[in-house]
Design a protein around this nucleic acid. Structure first.
Length: 261
DNA sequence: AAGCGCCTCAACCGCTCCCGT
DNA sequence: TACGGGAGCGGTTGAGGCGCT
């Protein structure tokens, strides 16, 4: 139907985000909250399309994001949820505070899929593969080496479908996107994200509030990033995301919701 | 030390869903 | 109820990183 593109193709920047752009976006969202994404680039002074801004925020800049690889419990949780929900990554991510759909999707495609195949499980149906492909995967290859961590590799597969019973270790108390956590900061000075972003030298002060500067931070983006990672741990699993439980109940709820839809 | 090939993951694209009118 | 517009979702891509030869 020739839908209107989400943004003018002309004059819209693509590709990796710069620290400067990140700062502008974060400044804007922390100040104004998430309004309509279409308007964000213009208001924030970015030459990006709104979609791109939303993606950058939800997948990378959001304060409540955990970073780093999924741990074993999280992986198992992903497997369980995938068995129930299929490729509905956003729903899966919704049950894993601090993780994004993109992150989970990537991890699934690059790690979990392979592991399941190695264990003789079809990653699509979560049922046992007819012919154990374990042997096939023995073929020497570098990535196998990388993947070949002892941890779950030897897990016996007695069930054709992976169940949730063994995921009681799953940490998240609840779900909910936690998208607007930034509003919890009454003083933006205290916002670690602002802190780390200011750590980048050479950035021109935005017209918002010069008091946001944090000279104590590192000089480069990476250093600041690690600062951010360290200081935002509280935003991950320790945080109350507003949903009571993250056990099987949530799955039941999901199933109910699915049935309704 | 250099070159090559594979892997990872951030970002894009296009479709679907949802909501307001 | 139908339509249009915006947001969200899932699949895909490609640049950069890393390990092996």
């Amino acid at each position: 139907m020739g839908r209107q593109p989400c943004c003018d193709k002309l004059g819209v920047k693509k590709g990796p985000w710069t620290a400067d752009e990140d700062k502008k976006l974060v400044n804007f969202i922390l100040t104004n909250g998430q309004c309509c994404w279409r308007a964000v680039p213009k208001l924030a002074g970015l030459l990006r399309c709104g979609k791109s801004c939303r993606l950058r925020w939800t997948n990378y800049l959001r304060p409540d994001l955990k970073r780093g690889l999924l741990n074993e419990a999280e992986e198992q949780l992903v497997i369980d949820l995938h068995a129930r929900l299929g490729n509905r990554w956003s729903k899966i991510a919704g049950k894993m505070p601090g993780r994004t759909d993109n992150e989970i999707k990537n991890h699934w495609n690059t790690h979990i899929k392979k592991k399941l195949v190695k264990r003789g499980i079809d990653p699509v149906t979560h049922e046992l593969l007819k012919k154990q492909p374990a042997q096939e995967s023995q073929a020497p290859s570098r990535d196998r080496d990388r993947d070949t961590k002892p941890e779950s590799e030897n897990a016996p597969e007695s069930d054709s479908v992976v169940t949730s019973e063994d995921t009681t270790s799953s940490p998240p108390e609840n779900s909910s996107s936690g998208e607007s956590r930034s509003s919890d900061f009454t003083n933006l000075d205290e916002h670690p994200l602002v802190s780390f972003l200011w750590g980048d030298e050479g950035y021109e002060e935005p017209p918002l509030d010069s008091s946001w500067k944090f000279p104590g931070l590192g000089d480069n983006y990476d250093a600041s990033m690690s600062f951010w990672e360290e200081n935002c741990a509280w935003l991950s699993f320790d945080q109350d995301f507003g949903v009571d439980n993250f056990g099987l109940e949530c799955l039941t709820d999901m199933e109910m919701a699915d049935r309704q839809s």
